[in-house]
């Protein structure tokens, strides 16, 4: 097996599985010795949140196990397609560090409550943090170092051939990029839940809590309106991407277009997530996996935006870039 793949497998899949299994094993071992309920949340003045003990192994499996595994496997899938790069080395390292940190933290919170009469007496979690945080950081750095530094081995995408336009002919390509229906449904539900929570809090008369939750709901609504849909326009002046509500507007002027290609993009593996992403050397508006256009700017930076019918969009932008260069010369 290729070194990049085997090391990423170790960091992004094996480490989270082992760390989670170890944490859950420790939690189950101390389960008989615990107060019921156990403390699961600490404020400045000691424990302030309590749950049944069995919820802790479940949370461990979800946060220290599932979440890092999703990060790790998404990187592995991209590596197996032959992709290499900064983000693909970072994701498995983050997965390894995160699982060790969260596993140690969650298991530690149960270990310190062994033999207590009531969870009210639980000591602070500062000491657990002092162990869990460095442990996660060290494992994360080691996982980063263990993986080979390889730059993208995939061939650069072949540039689109410019659309042939008659002199005087005007052309525009208008398209939209949308999140997948599932992601969209999740965001809409989360936003609705926040508003419902805010309404309930106002009814309950807790002014501070209701103000905070209303703020969260407003923020979520703005984010949902901004990052779930983008309008893409290509014309003689270049490329314009505008988000749903016109909060964000990104432009690549035609004079700045060096080359354009239609590509397939994978947000999580290549840009560490979805939305408007910045990574070294590139800016990307990635709202879903799949077809996208990649613009190489004259500065060498890349700009990527997901669109349907990417080949047509790429060829028109290539034509606009060519026309702008011809006009300059």
């Amino acid at each position: 097996m290729d070194k990049a793949i085997s090391r990423a497998l170790g960091a992004g899949v094996v480490t989270p599985v082992v760390a989670t299994a170890a944490a859950v094993a420790v939690e189950l071992a101390v389960m008989g010795d615990l107060p019921d309920p156990v403390a699961t949340h600490w404020g400045t003045g000691g424990p302030d949140g309590f749950s049944a003990a069995w919820t802790v192994p479940l949370m461990t499996a979800l946060t220290a196990g599932m979440l890092p595994l999703i990060l790790g496997t998404s990187a592995l899938l991209a590596l197996r397609r032959g992709e290499r790069g900064f983000t693909l080395r970072l994701l498995p390292a983050v997965a390894a560090g995160l699982s060790v940190y969260l596993g140690a933290l969650l298991a530690g919170t149960l270990v310190i409550q062994r033999g207590l009469e009531t969870a009210q007496d639980a000591p602070g979690v500062g000491s657990i943090m002092l162990v869990a945080l460095p442990a996660g950081a060290v494992v994360g750095v080691l996982a980063w170092l263990a993986q080979p530094r390889e730059t993208a081995s995939v061939a650069a995408p072949s540039p689109a051939s410019p659309l042939a336009l008659q002199p005087g002919e005007r052309a525009v390509w208008l398209g939209r990029a949308e999140m997948t229906p599932w992601a969209l449904a999740f965001i809409v539900l989360a936003t609705l839940a926040a508003w419902t929570g805010a309404a309930l809090m106002w009814l309950a008369g807790d002014t501070v809590a209701s103000a905070i939750i209303t703020g969260v709901a407003v923020l979520l609504t703005a984010l949902a309106a901004t990052f779930t849909v983008a309008h893409v326009r290509i014309d003689a002046s270049g490329l314009t991407v505008t988000t749903g509500v016109r909060l964000v507007r990104l432009r690549v002027p035609a004079e700045d277009v060096a080359s354009v290609a239609a590509i397939d993009v994978h947000g999580l593996a290549q840009y560490g997530g979805y939305g408007i992403r910045q990574i070294p050397g590139a800016t990307a508006v990635v709202l879903r996996p799949g077809p996208a256009i990649e613009v190489a700017r004259r500065s060498g930076r890349r700009f990527v935006v997901t669109v349907d019918d990417a080949p047509t969009a790429a060829s028109l932008l290539a034509a606009a870039g060519e026309a702008a260069h011809a006009a300059q010369d």
Partner: peptide, 9 residues
């Protein structure tokens, strides 16, 4: 969607 027009046509 691609739209192209030729005002000279």
């Amino acid at each position: 969607m691609l739209l192209r027009i030729d005002p000279a046509s």
